[in-house]
């Protein structure tokens, strides 16, 4: 089984201050650390586990600047055989453009595959769309929110999709297909710095993105970045930690949950 997995390098913004700059035209990420998109980490792990059973190879593909090589090295350290970088200095927001670049790339480079995995969503843009758009463009069956794969053989995949409120559905798809992998499907293996260093010795291929952009013009564009509209917001408890704790206990008592 040959599986292509798409992995994106994203800002790990959860604990960082995000500052909007240039009158809303940009977000300052200069001091923010970057990492592999969490959902893609699960997708690579799942692909590697399948290939360990069925034979074949996992190829990790990233669209991004030269730094996205980090993500490819990490994927190789996890068990991917190859890493392809579709290189661009632009940030492409439109998920249709990203999917179009990918489908053009797959056609032009005649990359063979039995399945394509993506993450459910990018942590930064949360479009949760590149996998589905790509599948449709390729005319392949698609499923997202994949939280378990029961079998992957004889030209078929049986998998579980996550719905709402803890409910799931079991579905069957024919190969080749595109699957978007949900977090929690597995426990991604630990990758040591040594492992990543060793992975650096494996050649990664670079493809300039503008080779795959002819057939597409932007469908949506970003006009401006804004901070979230302020809601009522919380009453902030400040001061010494021990005093804050006493305040908290008072609030609990007031709300009838703690003596």
């Amino acid at each position: 089984m040959n599986i292509l997995v798409f992995a994106k390098r994203v800002a790990a913004a959860q604990e960082e201050e995000l500052r909007i700059v240039n009158d809303g035209q940009g977000v300052d990420l200069a001091k923010v650390p970057f990492k592999m998109n969490d959902w893609d980490n699960y997708a690579i792990e799942e692909a590697v586990r399948i290939v360990e059973k069925t034979g074949g190879a996992v190829t990790a593909v990233s669209i991004g600047d030269a730094e996205s090589d980090d993500v490819l090295r990490r994927a190789i350290a996890m068990g991917a055989k190859d890493g392809f970088l579709i290189e661009t200095s632009e940030t492409i927001h439109d998920p249709n453009e990203r999917a179009s670049v990918i489908s053009d790339f797959l056609k032009k480079e005649s990359t063979p595959f039995d399945a394509i995995f993506t993450g459910v969503q990018s942590e930064d843009d949360q479009f949760a769309s590149v996998g589905g758009i790509l599948a449709a463009r390729l005319g392949l069956p698609y499923a997202s929110m994949i939280i378990g794969i029961d079998s992957f053989e004889n030209g078929q995949v049986t998998a579980r999709r996550e719905l709402e409120g803890g409910l799931r559905e079991r579905i069957k798809l024919t190969l080749p297909c595109v699957l978007s992998i949900q977090s929690g499907i597995n426990e991604p293996r630990y990758v040591s710095i040594m492992g990543v260093r060793k992975a650096s010795k494996v050649d990664r291929k670079i493809f300039p993105m503008n080779n795959y952009q002819e057939n597409f013009s932007n469908m949506i564009e970003i006009i401006k970045w804004v901070y979230p509209e302020k809601k009522a917001g919380a009453t902030m408890l400040t001061g010494e930690l021990s005093n804050i704790c006493k305040d908290v206990l008072g609030i609990l008592k007031e709300n009838g949950v703690c003596q």
């Binding site: 998920p95 589905g132 758009i133 449709a136 499923a143 996550e162 949506i220």
Partner: peptide, 20 residues
């Protein structure tokens, strides 16, 4: 879960712009 899946597939199939 399903709305997201359907919207992206329809966008790719009909080649229509998508915002989620």
């Amino acid at each position: 879960s399903s709305g997201t899946e359907l919207a992206s597939y329809a966008s790719g199939h009909f080649k229509l712009p998508l915002i989620t």
